[in-house]
Design a protein around this nucleic acid. Structure first.
Lengths: 115, 115
DNA sequence: TCCTTATTTAACAAGATGATTAAATAAGGA
DNA sequence: TCCTTATTTAATCATCTTGTTAAATAAGGA
């Protein structure tokens, strides 16, 4: 998972319409028309949202006749989940226990907290 | 966790400089000057990144003399972790087992997958 | 008070984003 | 071939984001 990919995925997830699209796709594949139905936006807008999600590796597309259904990429959110996981001690520990955790931390250089 | 808050947090995390700032803060609080040091950007730019992170509820600020150190909000990533968690079955199940999972899914309306 | 340090605000330019409508393309069917 | 359905591309626009530099503000110390 490159830093750019992580940025692309977080950016893709920052839009509520795109999150709703993912929620819909979690129930099974759907065409652009299907996905557009619940929203007050045009077809081209949905088409572009799908492109953003696809570029972020969150969905994949297929082809059935004129339709180009989208489906969740099963491995989609793995990278983000792993990134978030680095910070789990910070929300699992209370403030008090966090102090102890920080004292145990060794300095180091990298992209995330050291454990 | 409102939908707007989730959007703000994902948007905040979409920037690599801001993720690096969080990584630095995971080792303890730091001032704007401290945080700016590793980057080739101006102080005002860092100051604004901190505002974005603060508005997203990911960090908090304090005051010591002229300094306004930032520190991780311990509960920061909880909401995002919970959101991601909804999709865990999709990356934990293989493609095959996912088919079975999807067959068991009941239709419904909401913001995330039904379990 | 004047000076220094730390940080923020203001004003601005460049680029990205998200939406629209109209037109183009793709695939099938009468 | 002509028509219909599904989707994408093009052109355009308004808004948001990110960065800059210069100036303002905040807090302490000589």
């Amino acid at each position: 998972m490159t830093d750019d990919m992580l940025s692309a995925q977080f950016a893709a997830l920052a839009d509520p319409t795109r999150r709703a699209i993912l929620a819909r796709l979690s129930q099974g594949e759907a065409s652009v028309n299907d996905l557009a139905a619940p929203f007050a936006v045009s077809l081209p807008a949905i088409s572009r949202h799908l492109k953003v999600l696809e570029n972020a590796g969150l969905i994949c597309r297929s082809r059935t006749a004129q339709r180009r259904p989208a489906c969740l990429d099963p491995h989609a959110l793995r990278g983000i989940a792993d990134w978030i996981e680095q910070y789990r001690p910070f929300w699992e520990a209370g403030f008090d226990r966090l102090d102890g955790y920080l004292e145990q931390l060794q300095a180091g250089d990298g992209d995330g907290p050291r454990h």
